[in-house]
């Protein structure tokens, strides 16, 4: 664990950013609260960060702040869903999700003209799980109904989606993150995804694909 952390001082030196920038990004919630790890050292309290995550994030912010404002960045990086809507045709044509996932979604919820962000997110998570071979199509339905019914209640808080299998029965769980969760021996975790990370990936894909721009409600 120790090796995976980087002190604030080292971070600033390594990336060349200032305290002012770091605190500004924190205020704008570009850096999640739970990455700030406070620890006692011989020089007093110091703040540490998960090394890989923070370095990747700082790099990302530095690259993206050229073309987007901090508020736009916050929108991309925050786990609260964005107000976007795309048509079924756009979703199909884009390389964001596979057709199989879209078809399964429409099979469960009926044909749709427009997809809101939570819908796209559900399809995206489904697609990821299907593509990795972690779950079957039938289990995909369980996943979709769980996401549809309960993802809202997390209201932008970070959460994990866990898929458990035991004796041929599968259960989909949403749990707020970071959190520890244990199961009995017979249960097997078929797949686990961090929803905030998925949202971020998806938003970046949508933006890069030009779908999010101009489609904002």
């Amino acid at each position: 664990m120790e090796n995976d952390l980087i002190s604030k001082k080292d971070l600033l030196e390594l990336t060349g950013i200032s305290y002012g920038q770091l605190y500004r990004w924190k205020r704008k919630m570009l850096i999640p609260e739970d990455w700030f790890v406070r620890k006692s050292t011989f020089t007093g309290q110091e703040t540490f960060f998960p090394r890989d995550k923070i370095l990747a994030r700082v790099e990302k912010i530095k690259n993206m702040k050229e073309e987007s404002s901090l508020d736009e960045l916050a929108d991309i990086l925050s786990p609260s869903p964005k107000d976007i809507e795309i048509t079924a045709a756009e979703l199909n044509s884009g390389s964001i999700v596979s057709n199989a996932a879209v078809e399964l979604f429409q099979d469960v919820f009926g044909l749709r003209e427009h997809f809101s962000f939570p819908d796209i997110l559900s399809v995206y998570i489904l697609d990821k799980m299907l593509a990795s071979g972690d779950i079957s199509g039938e289990e995909g339905r369980v996943l979709l109904s769980t996401l549809e019914g309960h993802l809202d209640s997390f209201k932008g808080q970070n959460c994990d989606m866990i898929f458990i299998r035991k004796l041929g029965t599968s259960v989909c769980v949403l749990v707020s993150a970071p959190n520890q969760i244990s199961f009995d021996k017979g249960a097997r975790i078929a797949g686990r995804l961090n929803v905030a990370a998925c949202i971020e990936e998806l938003k970046t894909k949508l933006l890069n694909g030009g779908l999010a721009n101009g489609k904002t409600i």
Binding site: Y23, G44, Q45
Partner: peptide, 20 residues
């Protein structure tokens, strides 16, 4: 406990660490 900033000026302040 700690003050961190780019530009720091302090008076009448008791602090453990000041970084800037």
């Amino acid at each position: 406990e700690t003050i961190e900033g780019d530009n720091i000026f302090i008076e009448d302040t008791t602090a453990k660490v000041v970084r800037g």
